[in-house]
Amino acid sequence: MAEKELLRISNLVASFSINGGYYAAVDGVSLQINENEVFAIVGESGCGKSALALSILNLHNKANTKIEGSIYFKGRDILSLGLEELNKIRGRDIGMIFQDPLTALNPLMIIGAQIEESLFYHTGMNIGERKKRSLELLTQVGIQSPELTYHQFPHELSGGMRQRAMIAIALSCKPSLVIADEPTTALDVTIQAQILDLLRRLQKEMKSGIILITHDLGVVAEMADRVAVMYAGQIVETADVNEIFSNPLHPYTKSLFASMPDAYRNARKDQRLPVIEGMVPSLLNMERRGCRFAPRIPWISDAAHEAVPQYHEVKPGHLVLCSCYKNFYLKSIPRRVSSSTLR
């Protein structure tokens, strides 16, 4: 299946200046997103997935960020574009859905005006056409009474409605790529199911690519075509969605999948979840040599890791970083409360 390439990121490094030094939050990420594809980026907080998303639209604060590498969107290098050129792409060709609609929406503008804003900048529509299109969009995202919602302020809407309004804004100019940064994290499960359903339907209609950033593996399983798992600024594993859920290989992916309680899977006998020891290293004290996950799996010998981790293509399209996956096994963690502490 020869898909048309939409976005190609090669060797992207995004570093933030902290106390005078630059620290890379995204460290050498390369990936490719095709048209009509949902590409999920999974990881825990602090692994650099949002930093990666913001780099694509160059939304970081210029004063303290350094971005290296290249990002080609439909063949154009968007990192070299000036602000004016970039603003033509933002909102029109690439739409963004943010995690928290209450902070992303302007509290002083009615919903209708916020949707029309991007139409005003990117299309030649007049007032009447813009309003018509906004109402159309509101209907499209499943808002019951678009006329009413058009004139409402964000605080008058419920969380699910706000997120729908955000999606309407992101989709207003029919972008060919949508970046959704944790689009359902703040929502209840039933609303989440509706929003995911909506995104899926709109994606089918508009044939756009979606970059779905999330920490919720359930959302990934429901939505994604391909998945990349990030840890400490690097992509540690990429595969298509069925492959990664049935055959996770990288130690981090394996541990992450094992540590998730699942309502659909029968509970393990001992009722204990395997956990990952330690925590995600912070930007400042991250070991930037060798396998970055090694400190959290001390029971795997150093010889199993590569000095300079390489991507190994296990199957076509399934890439794993570092050779340590070959020798990895999950270890059960001993109980924290020993009987000696009992009185």
């Binding site: 499960v189 989440q192 919720d216 069925n242 859920f245 659909y264």
Partner: peptide, 22 residues
Amino acid sequence: KRLIAAIPNKNPSMREEMQRVR
């Protein structure tokens, strides 16, 4: 029933079936 059906299923091959259930 609605609440249980809305839980994302962590098995991608069940996608269509979950959609039907929902």
